[in-house]
């Protein structure tokens, strides 16, 4: 069984211009060139240190489904900059949730942002299939 609280970090993350452009393009910005959006830190969830505990919980319990998301900034992110991310993953039960809280600091140690992702873990055995007409 996975531990109910897991911590990781500091993890070095960054906002390269090409990654920022791709994220802006796919989230509806007219101009691809520009600063990282406030929602940009979701791209850091692909880091193995963040993704692996989510995958482990998915294997143990069920599919993670994004239930809520929060970004809280002391100051905006900058394209090309690197940051240190400290992560805490906490499990909740009834219903099963995984709550990932990331705190982001600049390389001088100053706080930049807090990001909280709430994932509901869905056991496939509890899910009803879609009605036949909807599934076609």
């Amino acid at each position: 069984m996975t531990r109910p609280v897991q911590r990781a970090g500091p993890l070095r993350v960054s906002a390269p211009a090409d990654v920022v452009r791709a994220f802006r393009r796919e989230t509806g910005w007219r101009e691809e060139d520009g600063p990282p959006p406030a929602s940009f830190p979701v791209v850091w969830m692909r880091l193995p240190e963040i993704g692996e505990p989510i995958r482990a919980a998915a294997q143990e319990i069920g599919l993670p489904v994004h239930e809520a998301q929060l970004f809280d900034y002391a100051r905006p992110l900058e394209t090309g900059a690197s940051y240190d991310l400290r992560l805490e993953m906490r499990r909740q039960s009834n219903p099963m949730r995984l709550i990932a809280t990331a705190e982001i600091f600049d390389l001088s140690g100053a706080f930049v942002a807090r990001v909280v992702s709430t994932l509901r873990l869905i056991d496939p055995a509890t899910v009803s299939p879609p009605p036949p007409e909807a599934a076609s």
Partner: peptide
Amino acid sequence: LHGMKLLAAFEPL
């Protein structure tokens, strides 16, 4: 749709 794509779409708006 990814929920985050929906939330992020508010930023350009």
